[in-house]
């Protein structure tokens, strides 16, 4: 990974000031190629701040008053589609994870993640690659599984994972990094990234019952 010439501009959205300052201190202190340019504690503040500061990556809390992270995603993505979101939350319940991913987040990590891993995840979404935690990979595998009794897919292109995508997800769920997956499947890291991007696109666009159910639980679709 080559360090970019200018640092990645990060914006923090979380309604807990304590958590914001913790992340800010951690990123500012130990990660030279990331700078926290601003933070917000509410949906309205976040929308205004992101419009004003134009950050590269927004670290977004899922649970907030007034609609939560999904509301920020919806409002900002209409006007600034180039801003990348990485969801960050204490919850790793299926409906939360799937809901923000479908609202347009490029990845999802839980708040227990270490500072180094968080910085990695930020760089990765900045570079255009999705970040799937093992748990998210497990959810997506489950949502796309063809169990007996599941509704038949309506759009085969979007509602099915290819065999290769399934293999990649399985290895992600086992805790493999992209590089390790590439070695395991004898493909290039670039190909792994392509597969994961394709899975992300399907997760966001597919109308498979499990996905839309989790999303509609949060009134997103």
């Amino acid at each position: 990974m080559t360090a970019p010439a200018t640092p990645v501009r990060v914006f923090l959205v979380d309604d807990h000031a304590l958590f914001r300052s913790g992340v800010r201190a951690e990123l500012d202190r130990s990660v030279p190629d990331l700078t926290v340019v601003g933070e917000a504690g509410s949906v309205a503040e976040a929308v205004a701040g992101i419009a004003h500061l134009h950050p590269d990556v927004v670290l977004l809390d899922v649970h907030m008053p007034d609609g939560g992270g999904a509301e920020v995603l919806r409002k900002v993505r209409l006007v600034q589609p180039d801003v990348v979101f990485l969801a960050l939350s204490v919850s790793d319940a299926a409906e939360d994870v799937i809901a923000v991913i479908r609202a347009g987040a490029r990845g999802y990590v839980t708040k227990t993640i270490s500072g180094r891993e968080l910085a990695d995840a930020v760089r990765r979404v900045r570079a255009g690659d999705p970040v799937f935690s093992p748990r998210l990979a497990g959810f997506v595998l489950d949502a796309f599984s063809d169990r007996p009794g599941a509704a038949p897919p309506t759009d085969p292109e979007l509602d099915r994972l290819t065999r290769r995508e399934r293999d990649v997800l399985r290895l992600l769920a086992r805790g493999y990094s992209y590089r390790e997956i590439a070695g395991e499947l004898f493909i290039s890291v670039k190909t792994v990234e392509t597969h994961v991007s394709s899975v992300l696109r399907k997760t966001q666009m597919s109308n498979r019952y499990e996905l839309s159910r989790w999303a509609t639980d949060r009134r997103l679709v």
Binding site: P134, G138, D142, S145, R147
Partner: peptide, 10 residues
């Protein structure tokens, strides 16, 4: 240490 199991397939 942290051990997070992920189970798929029901």
């Amino acid at each position: 240490l942290s051990v997070r199991p992920v189970v798929v397939g029901g």
